[in-house]
């Protein structure tokens, strides 16, 4: 969608631009050539069925995988540059916490960026609601607490871009709303959030724009209002209607 943004605004906002990106493994085309441009602020939500390529695309955008063709530019700079990747953080579908205390997980990242500070660490733990658990081994936290810690740790690098891969899958409604609150806060602080979810109501609550993926490509990229009221792609329409039919089992229970 954002191809309509004025060039002047783009130079200030420095968006993401993806051109003709493709990725394959052992001759299997997992992502077919796709284009994408996103604003450098706000929350972009990535939707689509299992196996559509959402996690793959996040990894490519973050520079964890090398594309077979095409280019990924952040700020007009290639994702290959370390300085670009240093400004990004990612919370994985299955976060990997270090086998250390909760506090040490944050300290590790702060020290890595030469920003060691107990005050900053305590702030981050506080906003994650983990202040009273700072001495506990990180891997003994509950699933929801681990996700919150993973997000707090990702924010510890003070990123410009935050990737979240299904951060609320398998969490209860309260834990989910806590994480949504963290995401809102981050976005308000000017951090660009790109997040994958299967939770339609969550997508409605958070999305500024929706990237809808299907069969290894982007079926559509629309503003949230447009996507939820009148999706442009057939795939998007079908997917949405499957959620809206009450008989469907994959409809979120707390919707």
């Amino acid at each position: 969608m954002n191809t309509t943004a004025t060039p002047a605004r783009r130079n200030v906002q420095l968006p993401l631009q993806v051109r003709a990106l493709s990725y394959q493994v052992q001759g299997r085309q997992l992502l077919s050539p796709l284009n994408l441009s996103i604003d450098s602020t706000g929350i972009s939500i990535m939707l689509g069925p299992n196996g559509a390529g959402k996690s793959l695309l996040l990894r490519l955008l973050h520079g964890l995988l090398k594309p077979d063709s095409g280019s990924i530019l952040w700020n007009q700079q290639s994702i290959g540059e370390l300085s670009v990747r240093m400004q990004q953080s990612m919370v994985f579908q299955k976060p990997v916490l270090l086998r250390r205390s909760v506090a040490a997980n944050i300290d590790y990242v702060l020290k890595l960026r030469n920003k060691a500070s107990t005050q900053r660490r305590d702030e981050l733990l506080h906003s994650a609601g983990l202040a009273d658990k700072s001495a506990q081994p990180a891997r003994s936290l509950s699933g929801g607490e681990q996700q919150r810690l993973a997000i707090a740790r990702a924010l510890a690098t003070s990123p410009a871009v935050l990737f979240l891969d299904e951060p609320t899958a398998s969490l209860d409604p309260e834990a989910t709303s806590h994480i949504e609150h963290q995401v809102h806060q981050a976005a308000r602080a000017g951090i660009k959030v790109i997040m994958v979810t299967h939770d339609l109501s969550q997508a409605r609550r958070l999305a500024h724009d929706v990237i809808f993926m299907s069969y290894g490509t982007i079926a559509e990229h629309s503003s949230a209002g447009l996507f939820f009221s009148n999706p442009a792609s057939v795939a998007g329409k079908t997917w949405l209607s499957s959620y809206l039919q009450p008989s469907q089992t994959n409809s979120p229970s707390h919707d």
């Binding site: 990894r59 973050h62 370390l82 953080s89 990612m90 994985f92 990997v96 890595l112």
Partner: peptide
């Protein structure tokens, strides 16, 4: 387990 996470953190 650690590889991607550490890579992500540079």
């Amino acid at each position: 387990d650690y590889r991607e996470q550490l890579h992500s953190l540079c």
